[in-house]
């Protein structure tokens, strides 16, 4: 079952960013499936950590383009990334310490953040990237 379905609405029209966003959707769905299937804590932790790593990777890609093109909204966007990375890290700590389980709320948070971030902040940099010749 898919928690989050990729549609063309999510496309920012930049090939590498779309590729990474699709992978994020896949990893969030994978976390969701592992929760539904009642996988072990070890297994869920590994998927969680995989998602966390990929999120960081993806943010690094975006940020390296921002720096290269001196993107005007860079500071605000990077700040959003930082807040999200901190939130994910806190959620993982809570999960590992048993304060929280991988719940529907947590997955909803991931799902909503990704959709809102792509449809909002990410779409803003499209013209800057395109002006610099990125396809």
């Amino acid at each position: 079952m898919e928690l989050l379905k990729w549609t063309d609405d999510y496309s920012v029209g930049i090939v590498i960013i779309d590729y990474q966003h699709k992978r994020l959707v896949m990893l969030i769905n994978k976390l969701y499936d592992s929760m539904l299937e009642g996988k072990t804590m070890e297994s869920i932790t590994e998927i969680f950590e995989g998602l966390e790593d990929y999120i960081k990777n993806h943010f690094e890609t975006e940020e390296s383009f921002f720096k290269e093109f001196n993107y005007e909204d860079m500071k605000t966007h990077i700040k959003e990334h930082k807040v999200f990375v901190d939130q994910i890290s806190q959620l993982k700590k809570d999960y590992l310490s048993g304060k929280n389980t991988v719940s529907v709320e947590l997955l909803d948070f991931l799902k909503n953040w990704l959709s809102e971030h792509i449809l909002g902040s990410d779409k803003k940099y499209i013209s800057c990237f395109k002006e610099n010749g990125v396809i």
């Binding site: 590498i16 383009f65 010749g133 990125v134 396809i135």
Partner: peptide, 8 residues
């Protein structure tokens, strides 16, 4: 820019 995309 193509190099940047592919190398990244």
């Amino acid at each position: 820019s193509d190099f940047k995309v592919l190398s990244e």
